[in-house]
């Protein structure tokens, strides 16, 4: 498989604090890679290292087949569009004037600018000053600036931050269209729900470590869904099961974590043997959001 981004043991330390801890990212060419993690997990720092805005403490990154560093960054960045932190844009200028700045900065032709603006559907708002733009419009302008160079790779840091549901949906649609046009997209978010519908690959970062990387299906298969047991004498049942598996009382049911089919059978047998009446045993439907929360130990929200 070809990768647009590959990192090897990529690490960033500030003093004793490890912000990014030996991560091995592999972003397939043509994918929408959802880069997920709670706030402060190291996503932005990783993205900045990929753009050579921050120097790695150790490890290395290969972007579009070339090692990314201070010497190569200028060349590579010509093919990488990015939107890091808040959307850029000179507030006192109009959208069109901002795009002209980018055109001159990167030596682009007018057709490239027009195409980028059309892609984000901002062509009717270009004569307004950026100060009068909504956050969604600013995000779209930022993405148009990133797209103007017709990049092979787009790196977007939390582009849905602060957007209303309609804006989030619009952003998802945009990401799908960009991927369909052959651009590899690395998009970060601290909320899985915002990008899981359009991401073809997912990486989850927690406390600076890459705790999962793979497809959506692989993520769903990663963690065995919980089993919920409705029974009599719930506190006693939970107490009994705790000796055997990870179990806890949750209202009027007992929740059992990480039990496979044999484990469930054993648990039920143990409860029946203790004279506890079983009313219902069911395995919970697994959502990606649950996976994310479990993998990040509840720090996702």
């Amino acid at each position: 498989m070809n990768f647009a981004i590959q990192t090897s043991d990529l690490t960033k330390r500030y003093g004793d604090r490890v912000v990014v801890d030996r991560i091995d990212l592999a972003v397939p060419v043509g994918s929408v890679y959802g880069f997920l993690g709670p706030n402060g997990s190291g996503k932005s720092t990783t993205m900045k290292m990929l753009l050579s805005l921050v120097r790695p403490s150790s490890g290395d990154a290969t972007v579009l087949g070339r090692p990314m560093n201070r010497q190569t960054r200028r060349d590579i960045l010509g093919e990488v569009g990015s939107l890091i932190e808040s959307p850029p844009g000179y507030h006192h200028l109009t959208g069109a004037e901002n795009m002209r700045l980018i055109q001159r900065l990167l030596g682009l032709d007018t057709r490239q600018i027009e195409q980028a603006v059309r892609t984000v559907r901002l062509q009717d708002q270009l004569d307004k000053r950026v100060a009068a733009y909504s956050l969604g419009m600013k995000q779209r302008l930022g993405i148009a600036m990133a797209l103007a160079r017709q990049p092979r790779l787009l790196i977007l840091d939390e582009p849905t931050n602060g957007l209303d549901p309609a804006g989030v949906e619009e952003m998802r649609d945009l990401l799908r269209r960009l991927a369909a046009s052959g651009i590899t997209v690395l998009v970060s978010s601290h909320q899985l729900g915002e990008i899981d519908k359009c991401a073809t690959s997912i990486g989850i970062l927690s406390r600076g470590r890459l705790i999962f990387q793979g497809s959506r299906d692989q993520l769903l298969a990663q963690v065995t869904p919980d089993v919920v047991i409705e029974c009599s004498e719930v506190p006693l049942a939970a107490e009994l099961l705790r000796q055997q598996v990870t179990a806890r009382q949750e209202g009027h049911v007992v929740r059992v974590r990480g039990a496979d089919s044999a484990g469930v059978a054993d648990a039920v047998a143990r409860l029946v043997h203790a004279g506890i009446h079983i009313f219902e045993v069911r395995r919970e439907g697994q959502t990606l959001e649950n996976m994310f929360l479990r993998l990040t130990e509840g720090r996702g929200l």
């Binding site: 805005l53 960045l77 890091i84 808040s86 850029p88 000179y90 006192h92 990167l106 990133a146």
Partner: peptide, 17 residues
């Protein structure tokens, strides 16, 4: 000030400036 307010430092940095 326009660079601070408009994210111009990062915008330029991502263009290699």
């Amino acid at each position: 000030e326009i660079e601070h307010r408009g994210g111009g430092w990062l915008l330029s940095a991502t263009a290699g400036i």
